[in-house]
Design a protein around this nucleic acid. Structure first.
Lengths: 199, 199
DNA sequence: CCAGGGCTACCTACCGGTCGGTAGCCTTTT
DNA sequence: AAAAGGCTACCGACCGGTAGGTAGCCCTGG
């Protein structure tokens, strides 16, 4: 499926993710990407068929990395709430990972021509995130009905999207305020489930 | 401050908001906007100085409309939770209002050159939204500490962003699932405040 | 020795923006 | 009443610049 990644192609992909994250699909130019990679624009075509293919390659690259990151968050033991590790790692991740910034920038409003493919990939990523959260939730609470688990799942995914958005356009201070507020809401609801809800 | 809007300019602005909402700042071309307005590209310059000014005019237009929409939501009596009217009107609003779609598309990731101006305008919009929610919350609960009000404000703004994002890239069914889930969380937390939290 | 990555040079298409000019509608002047 | 002038909205033609993409030669490493 995925062709082998030579060192030169690796350099191109890394250059591309920087430019796409910074300027978006339309705003990033192939000459800029080539410059970043230290080669000429025409030389890009030795490695990639065209701009769309380059974008998709970067997308799959980023998706893989961020899926791995999420997995690791859920693999670490969670002191408090389920999903807490992931949420609290977001700020640092946003600062460190060019690929994460790329995903955030391009996945909400993707280039129209690639919409379907991107949506499909993003869907898989989100389903994994949701599944990881649900199992963590089930591990945290001994017993929980499928309905409740589903509702909490929707709520947590909403919380994650909310934090993602906050990363993009709110400052660090308000990100943390939002994180605390949403964690309190989640905490309240989970505590309520823990006490048992049969009235 | 704001110059008068002639009928011809009105047509240009309406054409522009469609194109900008559909293709974004960089993706929308002046020829496309002119075509939509039924004139030639050169004629645009009888009404606006350049692309940036056109975009800003559309932005202020949209901001005004959506601020009005939010006001009306909070003016209506709310049967359940504070801020509920606004959240539950979003789906229909997204379907109906080109200006709303424009705001959602362009405000998270604005064109770099206009970033500051846009951020400023969006900030005002959000502050009004937050203030409206806070007064509604205070009206709903008789007594609430400033700290709690602030936390709930952050949480509700997060909820709103989450719903905005859902409008963009999730289907209608999942939007409603998310809305229900988040409303349940908010309801739980508000109920907890209602009972009084001095232990 | 030759395959492949890199290069220069070039292409077409389209971008935002400017130019000179014009049709038609007011308002003013005689 | 009619000529004169000004103003608005519009147009086709064109500008410099840049975009994505192609052709073909050169150089180097296995």
């Amino acid at each position: 499926m995925s062709s082998t990644i030579t060192p030169a192609l690796r350099r191109v992909l890394n250059a591309a993710v920087i430019q796409f994250a910074r300027h978006g699909y339309e705003g990033a130019s192939l000459s800029g990407i080539a410059l970043e990679a230290g080669i000429r624009k025409a030389s890009l075509y030795s490695h990639v068929k065209n701009k769309d293919a380059l974008f998709m390659a970067v997308f799959e690259d980023a998706l893989e990395m961020e899926a791995l990151f999420a997995r690791e968050c859920f693999a670490r033991p969670e002191p408090g709430l389920p999903g807490q590790n992931y949420c609290e790692s977001l700020l640092a991740r946003y600062a460190d990972s060019e690929h994460f910034r790329f995903l955030l920038r391009t996945s909400y409003i993707p280039p129209a021509s690639l919409f379907d493919e991107l949506q499909e990939g993003y869907e898989v990523y989100m389903q994994q995130l949701l599944a990881d959260f649900t199992t963590a939730l089930r591990r945290h609470l001994g017993q929980i009905s499928d309905q409740d688990a589903e509702v909490m799942g929707h709520a947590w995914m909403g919380m994650v999207d909310s934090l993602h958005v906050a990363l993009i356009y709110i400052g660090q201070a308000r990100f943390e305020a939002r994180l605390n507020a949403l964690e309190r809401l989640m905490g309240d609801s989970i505590a309520r489930l823990e006490q048992g809800e049969t009235p």
